[in-house]
Design a protein around this nucleic acid. Structure first.
Lengths: 385, 385
DNA sequence: CCCATTAAACTCGTCCTCCGAGCATAAACG
DNA sequence: CGTTTATGCTCGGAGGACGAGTTTAATGGG
């Protein structure tokens, strides 16, 4: 491989980033945002066409003037495989440079045993490799658990032991990028969802416990080993209660179906999400009181995170949406009373996430495309052709 | 001003960043880290010399081979004025591109009234402007309070009302960069202190209450309006207690001299820092018990932040250092028992900050130099010469 | 229906930076 | 004092981005 010159493909990579972040963007629009002269735009797109990274299609004309073109992924360009592993199923899609999804696939787990599930994923990777050959550049995997350097450290819903996720790509010579599902759904919100355009965003999602992430310019704060964003294990709660994570007083214990069951003096439910849905449907006084307590804990905690991070916006997903909806006034009161005074004038909005089930897959795709559209990756791809 | 070409000064700016981040670095070392050929290094340094950004001095020889040169700030190059406003005094220094401090100055406040203090700062800026002329590019100000878009929102120790800090540079045509002192001391730690080299770091400093910041690659997470890092106002504490900030259950209320006084059933001290020092010197049982409670709250809170952010390292400053030292075992126990299990194998070290009083000034200088060594700023300076 | 208007693409000469190869230079070592 | 070693310097060449000038493809008014 020829050595990469400094910044040789910088502008080309910038153009590709635009295409990945705003599918369907036109050449003229890219040139405007990057402040490229029309000459440079012509040259850059020609070069990207030559190395099979982009194609152009006529854009619908917008009034007078010569019509511009829509920049699209080249039919022989690089792709990534995005995978979303969930408790009872997995989903996947091949994603091209312009963010278009191809070959969506999904499958329920026949067995929930780790080795069986991972084998299925490995086969999906192999099938993709067989179909796309060396166009497949990266596999990006969303997992419902704490991920650290491509190892799954703990996964309460899956009930798996610590695990090396790299085996998913063991059969092929393609790097793996594994991440927490809540983190990745946050990425999706920050790129194309409710937090689009926010410089600083906090994303939270309640399923069993609470997961989330801090996003700065659309990039998640993943921490030293990728385990950042475990907001559920901040001690916002009652210190006398021990959490399965090993710590005490975790926020996690106050805001999900397990908390509702405790308040209602019932045993911990097998499926806390379904249980929570059921309680939310009830109108009796004890249920309402339990919901109020949980929503209050949610509002206070979010306020604490807003104090700490000063985000432009907070996005919430999963159970947090119906929970808040079930007691909007309670939520608002808890949220605002937990804010520092100077935030109260215009508190950051707490918005429902727009990508629901698609979030982790979309986020995994987005982070993978970040890699593909980085200058070194573009230069390396171009050098191969 | 001539329009800036894309990436025209990119490598030059990279070289300057190296010089700013590692004062005393040699030309050969820069070339190695940036993977520049010797020819490029020659050309880049020559260009930087031409536009008065760098000079070279012979470096002490290190074994065989032709000796290299140390890259230094040019005597007619750009400078910034770093200011550190404290409760009873202020300090300042002029900082050149290579991080060297010139004309250190400090002055106790004669009056603590905001207008008087700000007038003194304004005069310091004017004096610097008179001496350095248009070499002065930026004023960077550390303030002990919450800063939002160059406005001071609340400053408990100064007891000032909301205030526009831009008046500090009102007399001169130089931009201001105001920031929280705890945030800036975190920057100093992450750049040249105990957290040097850490990808993700959490910095905390106790004086009156607790301040801090999350640092990613040495860049503080400042939030939407610069008010990020108010970790003292996360609800780690007793929800029945109201904080002067307006929220309830703030961690702030559990970890400083005011907390010690409360545990000892004494009135809130006028100078909580001095009071804490005094309690730390006592050996009687009630004092020890109060310290234990505070240190426990400190350890738990830090563990929560580690769970949330997964940092490489935590740095602590101010009162946190003697507090922990007064009850090391208590601290360790609280810290480790607050961590999620998978962190306990190798918990992130909690290290004392190495920049003590210098921290905010150094951090303010570092962020200012970041701006000066950015590509657009370098290109703009070069265009003027 | 034709021509003015408009926005965008294309062409080309020029500038600039970075690279690599070859050469020069200043120290230390034996 | 020559050899070794690390570094600096010179110069031709490559390649990207720019800007000015030109061309092209649409709209819309007369």
């Amino acid at each position: 491989m020829t050595p990469v010159r400094r910044g040789q493909w910088q502008t080309a990579a910038d153009v590709l980033s635009q295409v990945a972040r705003q599918p369907g963007i036109t050449r003229a629009a890219v040139a405007r945002t990057l402040r490229l002269s029309t000459g440079s735009a012509t040259e850059v797109t020609a070069r990207l066409r030559d190395v099979h990274l982009l194609t152009e299609a006529p854009a619908p004309s917008q009034g007078r003037g010569r019509p511009t073109t829509v920049l699209q992924a080249h039919p022989e360009g690089p792709v990534v495989l995005a995978l979303d592993l969930r408790q009872s199923s997995w989903r996947g899609a091949v994603v091209a440079l312009d963010g278009t999804l191809q070959h969506p696939q999904s499958q329920r787990h026949r067995s929930r045993r780790a080795q069986v599930v991972l084998k299925n994923l490995r086969q999906a990777v192999e099938r993709t490799q067989a179909q796309y050959g060396d166009r497949l550049q990266l596999v990006s995997l969303a997992v419902p658990g704490t991920v650290r350097d491509n190892h799954l450290m703990q996964a309460p819903t899956l009930e798996w032991a610590e695990l090396d996720l790299a085996q998913v790509t063991a059969d092929v010579d393609v790097p793996l990028l594994a991440g927490n599902d809540a983190t990745l759904s946050g990425v999706a919100e920050a790129r194309t969802g409710a937090a689009a355009g926010a410089g600083t965003a906090v994303h939270l999602i309640i399923e069993v416990g609470i997961g989330g992430t801090l996003l700065i310019d659309g990039v998640p704060a993943q921490g030293a080993s990728g385990a950042g964003g475990e907001y559920g294990h901040m001690p916002f709660g009652d210190r006398s209660r021990t959490c399965p994570c090993g710590a005490r007083g975790c926020w996690d214990l106050e805001i999900d179906g397990r908390a509702l069951a405790r308040h209602l003096k019932q045993p911990t439910p097998d499926d806390p999400v379904a249980y929570a849905g059921e309680v939310l449907g009830r109108t009796d006084r004890p249920a309402r009181a339990a919901v109020t307590r949980v929503v209050t804990a949610l509002g206070y905690g979010i306020a604490g995170l807003v104090n700490a991070h000063d985000p432009d916006v907070v996005t919430i997903g999963g159970l947090a949406i119906p929970l808040r909806a079930a007691a909007e006034d309670t939520f608002r009161e808890a949220y605002e009373s937990g804010l520092m005074t100077f935030h109260r004038g215009s508190p950051p909005p707490v918005l429902p996430a727009t990508h629901q089930l698609d979030g982790p897959l979309r986020g995994a795709a987005a982070l993978a495309l970040d890699q593909l559209t980085s200058e070194p990756a573009v230069a390396a791809w171009a050098a191969q052709r």
